[in-house]
Design a protein around this nucleic acid. Structure first.
Lengths: 154, 154
DNA sequence: GGTATGCATTCATGTAGATTAACAAATCCC
DNA sequence: GGGATTTGTTAATCTACATGAATGCATACC
């Protein structure tokens, strides 16, 4: 548990870093974001004073997001708790999944979202009609059908 | 805490219902979804056996999502805990925000997402450049500039 | 104080995915 | 088992938003 003063523009966490921390923002403003393969950044969240900022990955995983300060800020840095209750672990897991989904919706075209979906939930794909997968992905059933045609053709 | 057998197609929770519950799926498959003003549905999540399904709203708020069974299912229904730790409440709050964001990305055009953002985070709008708001919304700075022009003109 | 650098705006053009419609295939169900 | 309903496919057209480029304004920096 450490108090850190950040100046505007300072990056405190990068994609791939280990030991991702939790930051309680005392003053200022933080941002977390991903950078896609074209170099475009996609902001996941803003955290002004009073908010918690964290990359929602397991404590032992490399993190997905960059975090930096948009204003001079003061934060309390904490290590992620390891002895969490089962209930809290499940909630964090759920946040991770949602974080990934938001980032995909912001940055990936439908075809990549579909491929990610079938990799992540292969059994669901078998059990629900395609139009529901389209609905989950945020596209129409017609568009999904066309995408699948393109995938099959290559 | 109650065991419930559901038949395929059965709706167990509707938007606007109070006392939203938590469902532990023992067998089968549940789905949660919203319906937009045009009648299109947008699937928020699937929950097969072993998963937890819940509309992530405070126990005293009307719920946002519909939940139904995509297969004959057996679930354990629990009431939402009221005496949660502060930490868990914060996590749930965060899930609510992400749930809303996913639904908006799935169903609302950029202009509505922008209007929702400025209502929800009016101070952030003042503190960051527009291009970052565009990045948060999932559009380009040029598109946001055009939208703002349209809003101003009306 | 002048000149880089970043930000917002506007416009022309391109494109992913929506919409509409028609039809084929699967599935439900009495 | 056969008609009805739901699902998936294909194709033509349309639209929201992306891309790229040019311009005017700030703000930052020697």
């Amino acid at each position: 548990m450490k108090r850190i003063e950040l100046s505007k523009g300072q990056v405190i966490q990068r994609k791939g870093d280990l030991n991702s921390k939790v930051y309680h923002v005392e003053s200022g403003l933080l941002r977390s974001y991903s950078i896609d393969e074209k170099g475009k950044d996609h902001i996941f969240m803003f955290a002004p004073e009073g908010w918690i900022m964290a990359d929602n990955v397991s404590p032992d995983q490399p993190c997905d997001l960059f975090i930096d300060a948009l204003e001079d800020s003061i934060v309390i840095q904490k290590t992620k708790d390891l002895d969490l209750t089962h209930e809290i672990q499940k909630l964090i897991k759920r946040i991770q999944v949602l974080q990934k989904r938001v980032i995909m919706l912001l940055s990936a075209p439908a075809i990549e979202r579909y491929e990610h979906f079938i990799q992540t939930y292969p059994d669901i794909v078998q059990r629900v009609p395609q139009k529901m997968i389209a609905s989950y992905l945020g596209i129409t059933p017609q568009a999904l059908s066309t995408l699948r045609g393109e995938i099959a053709r290559k």
